[in-house]
């Protein structure tokens, strides 16, 4: 069975185009998703850290909801329901109501929210592991609480949490494959299309698997370089093992 695998379809220029186009979409989704996810992580962690009224309980509810429900159902809900909630606009030429958020935007937002909720907790745990003395040092230098957060706690926390944040990014990349289920043409979607035309399911899935593996491996290697470059002399190395 293994030796009768047929990879000739890979030579078909149409399928090559499909895979490349899909790969582009996947990279775009994960790139934008990661940036948004980090923003949500930092802002959310700050909201909780500074105990901001109203925003803090809402952030906690958001974390509890997104971390304890399937990202796929979250995505389906965003994709199908946001327009029901009034998130739509009227096309000037045809006069029709059109959802404000494209499938692509829904996927990016859903990933940013799901992995962002994880990011908030990762950054918070990083902040908690900043040594007390370092913070006290900042206080004695006359820093305000905001300054301590901005210049001491957050930078150290972000460096300390590079390994955990890396697995969060990898999780985001893996989760992005569900974009295909709301008709967004990522690499998973095109792979499914190819299987429907060629009936070579196993072969296509093996190639797809390898594609994701290459992407995640590159991200992990990149993060390792970053961690090395940002090592704080004398401490934090233990967290990067």
């Amino acid at each position: 069975m293994l030796f009768s695998l047929d990879f000739e379809w890979l030579a078909d220029p149409l399928y090559q185009d499909w895979l490349l186009e899909g790969l582009g979409t996947t990279l775009a989704i994960t790139g934008v998703g990661t940036i948004l996810m980090l923003i949500i992580g930092v802002v959310g962690a700050a909201i909780i850290h500074f105990n901001i009224p109203v925003a803090k309980p809402l952030t906690i509810i958001m974390i509890d909801l997104f971390r304890n429900t399937p990202p796929l159902v979250q995505l389906l809900f965003l994709y199908f329901m946001l327009s029901d909630l009034g998130m739509s606009y009227t096309d000037a030429t045809t006069g029709e109501r059109i959802p404000l958020l494209s499938g692509f935007a829904c996927v990016v937002i859903s990933l940013a929210l799901y992995n962002g909720s994880i990011a908030i907790e990762v950054i918070r745990s990083g902040i908690n592991s900043v040594p007390r003395q370092t913070v006290e040092g900042g206080i004695s230098l006359g820093y305000s609480r905001a300054q301590i957060f901005r210049w001491i706690e957050l930078p150290i926390a972000l460096r300390l949490t590079i390994p955990n944040m890396t697995s969060n990014v990898v999780s985001l990349i893996k989760t992005s494959a569900q974009a295909a289920l709301v008709a967004v043409t990522d690499v998973m979607f095109y792979a499914t299309q190819i299987t429907l035309e060629t009936f070579l399911n196993l072969e296509v899935m093996i190639v797809l698997w390898l594609i994701y593996l290459v992407i995640t491996t590159l991200v992990v290697l990149l993060a390792k370089q970053l961690a090395k470059a940002l090592t704080i002399p004398g401490f934090g190395a233990g967290a990067m093992k």
């Binding site: 994709y79 199908f80 327009s83 029901d84 289920l181 709301v182 008709a183 979607f189 035309e197």
Partner: peptide
């Protein structure tokens, strides 16, 4: 394939009719 190839439409393809009908109704 004919829709995209012969007629040049952009297809938005789903795996189930429920999703497909809902997306169409939403104006996608």
């Amino acid at each position: 394939r004919a829709l995209t190839g012969t007629y040049g439409a952009q297809t938005v393809l789903f795996t189930g009719t429920a999703d497909m009908f809902k997306a169409f109704q939403d104006g996608r």
